[in-house]
Computed example of a mutant assay.
Amino acid sequence: MLLDTPLCDFGWQAVDFTLKDPGGRSFEMKEYLGEKGLLIAFICNHCPYVQAIAERLAQDTTELMAEGINVLAVMSNDYRHVPADSPKNMLRFAKKYGFAFPYLIDEDQAVGKAYGAVCTPDFFGFNKQGGLQYRGRLDNANMKNTTKRDKELVNAMRQIAATGKGPVQQTASMGCSIKWN
């Protein structure tokens, strides 16, 4: 089912969490809330919307991380009902697209629910105090035409890093519904 993300609830405070990657390493959100902010991306492997942006997401997040903006990705789908989203397949997907950020398993879906994530991809951009400042899309490119694109997420995260505030105008991300158990 295709869904759009809700409007940004400016200032909503990030909920701390500890999740593991498919290799079993633990990552604590508050350790990634750096001086220039944090991007949390709710993604999965099987969604055609995520597949369509995966290369651009890898490029854009690598750019952001080089500028000191931290990135975490969370997979909240119930992978027992969607085997394509299993931890083993998460490893393959991350390797295929060259993800440089931790790709974490939300085993009990508590993080996705705490954040109100609705679809994949669903982007949450936080300032250094953990206040939500961006809940929009990656860019304005459609599923096929990526030659001319406005890097909305990159620009928003740069603005957040510089000013602590996100852009007032944001366009909702859209994608497949999160597969709750």
Rank of each mutant, 00 (worst) to 15 (best):
D139I: 10
A172L: 02
F124N: 02
K128F: 08
Y115V: 06
F42A: 00
K148I: 14
V74W: 02
I43E: 03
V154C: 05
D21N: 15
F123Q: 05
V154L: 08
L138Y: 00
C119P: 10
L2Y: 02
T18V: 01
I69F: 08
Y32W: 14
K151I: 01
A84G: 10
T61I: 08
T120G: 06
F10D: 01
T5N: 08
F27D: 02
N70S: 11
I40A: 00
E107I: 06
M143D: 01
F101S: 06
L132W: 07
K36Y: 11
V50F: 06
F99R: 09
K148W: 11
A114D: 04
A84S: 09
A161Q: 04
V82N: 11
R25P: 01
R149I: 14
V50I: 11
K148Q: 12
Q170Y: 04
V168I: 13
G37N: 10
F124C: 11
G34R: 10
N70C: 05
A162Q: 13
A161L: 12
S26H: 15
S173L: 08
K148D: 13
D78N: 03
T61D: 05
A110M: 00
C44Y: 07
K179S: 01
D106S: 14
T163C: 08
Q169R: 11
V15N: 14
R25F: 09
K144L: 12
E67P: 02
S26P: 14
A110T: 04
Q129K: 14
D60G: 13
G11A: 13
H46W: 09
L72G: 04
Q170G: 07
A156M: 03
T146I: 01
A162P: 02
D106R: 05
G164E: 03
S76H: 04
L33E: 01
E55G: 07
A58D: 04
I53V: 14
H46G: 10
T171I: 13
A66K: 13
L3H: 02
E107Q: 15
S86K: 12
P83T: 09
H46I: 12
M75G: 10
M174N: 05
G164K: 12
G98D: 02
M143A: 07
L104Y: 09
E28N: 15
S177Q: 11
Q109F: 07
L39R: 02
A14D: 00
K30T: 09
A52I: 04
A66C: 08
Y97T: 10
M65L: 10
N89H: 15
G112T: 08
L138F: 14
M75L: 09
P83K: 07
Q133T: 12
E107L: 07
F126K: 08
V111G: 00
G34D: 05
A114R: 07
L33Y: 14
A14F: 08
D85N: 01
R80P: 13
T146F: 09
P167V: 12
L138S: 05
V82T: 13
N181G: 11
D150I: 14
A73R: 01
R56V: 01
C47W: 00
C8Q: 05
M1V: 09
